[in-house]
Amino acid sequence: MNSFERMAPDQIARLSLAITATAEVLGQTITSEAAEMMAGDLADYPVEAVSGALKACRRELTGKLTLAAVLQRVQAADGRPGKDEAWSIALTAGDESETVVMTAEIRQAMVAAQPILSRRDVVGARMAFNSAYERLVSAARAEAKPTTWSVSLGLDPARRVTAIESAVRMQLITLQAGTQYLADLRIAPITTDGQAIAGLITGSTAEPSPHLREKLAEVRQIVDAAKARQKREQLKKAQADRVDTYLRKRKFRAAIAAAQRKEASHG
């Protein structure tokens, strides 16, 4: 069942106009009925994802605009890893000391691969994993299911906080979820060093040992640098989006004007 909220009628109507305008930009004319039908088929996906897919189509397509082309770009932007990256994540999860953040499809595909992997047949396990993973991803995308990430906790407390902080920074899980993973009684740190490590996420303070203090300083430097880089990228993206929005609106108005002139000439 679709886990996204279906677009409202007014959103579908605007999407239909955007589809018509995108087709015009690509040198194609489609009927309002066809545009409305495409909009209805795309209405089960998030507005932002569909808008981004149409933008990608305007930039990338050299032929006609099709529903398949839009869907391909909508689904490719859902955040699910490719099969090679997914297999790498699955292998990492086999190390009990590692904390791994994975999607529901990776977790399920691991079930198919684990019996083969336990026989030390890595090649066979990878084939089984890839087959199951691609099938699961295709089914999830066909049902417009959003990508869900969860944390598989490892035994190493330092690696826990590094993996969870990274997942929060990449917006795979929320800050609240990351804090909860560390605050949960099942993984509550019982040593001073453990409390200091958890404090990186929770904001609590504890005096670490000199050795750990040096390591935490290195981690904070990495985190601060990553946050600064992310901020620069966000500013750059915001500026690019403003330019793209201006150009898209101008093309949209031009396409509508052209469509109106065409209708007038045939009137």
Results as ranks from 00 to 15, higher is better:
P46S: 08
A77F: 07
Q221W: 12
Q230P: 13
R119L: 07
I12R: 07
E24Y: 12
G178L: 02
T66W: 14
A139Q: 03
H211R: 10
E263K: 09
S16I: 10
R242P: 03
K145P: 04
Q195C: 05
L67G: 01
L185T: 13
Q230L: 13
Y246Q: 09
M110K: 05
W87Q: 05
M170C: 05
T22F: 00
D156E: 07
A34D: 11
E85N: 12
L65T: 02
R107A: 01
A259P: 13
T202N: 12
K237H: 13
S150A: 11
A217H: 02
L91Y: 13
G52E: 02
S3V: 08
Q11H: 07
M38C: 12
K249T: 15
A43P: 15
I256V: 08
P115N: 06
T103N: 00
P81G: 00
G124I: 02
A86M: 03
A13I: 03
P146A: 15
S88C: 06
A139I: 01
M170R: 09
T192E: 12
V168W: 04
L172A: 00
I201M: 12
S97M: 02
A113E: 00
R73H: 03
S97L: 03
G63V: 04
A132H: 00
Y246F: 15
T22R: 01
A158K: 08
S32M: 15
E233F: 06
T29Y: 10
A86D: 01
A206Q: 06
A226H: 05
A68I: 13
T245F: 12
L216K: 04
A39N: 07
P146I: 05
L42R: 10
A93R: 09
T162N: 08
S88F: 08
I164D: 11
R159V: 00
A86P: 05
R220N: 05
I12V: 13
R73M: 03
I164Q: 10
M110A: 14
T148Q: 06
W149T: 13
I197L: 10
E33K: 14
T147Y: 06
Q28G: 01
M38W: 10
L172Q: 05
P210K: 12
L153H: 10
K55M: 07
T162M: 08
N130R: 09
K55I: 09
S138L: 15
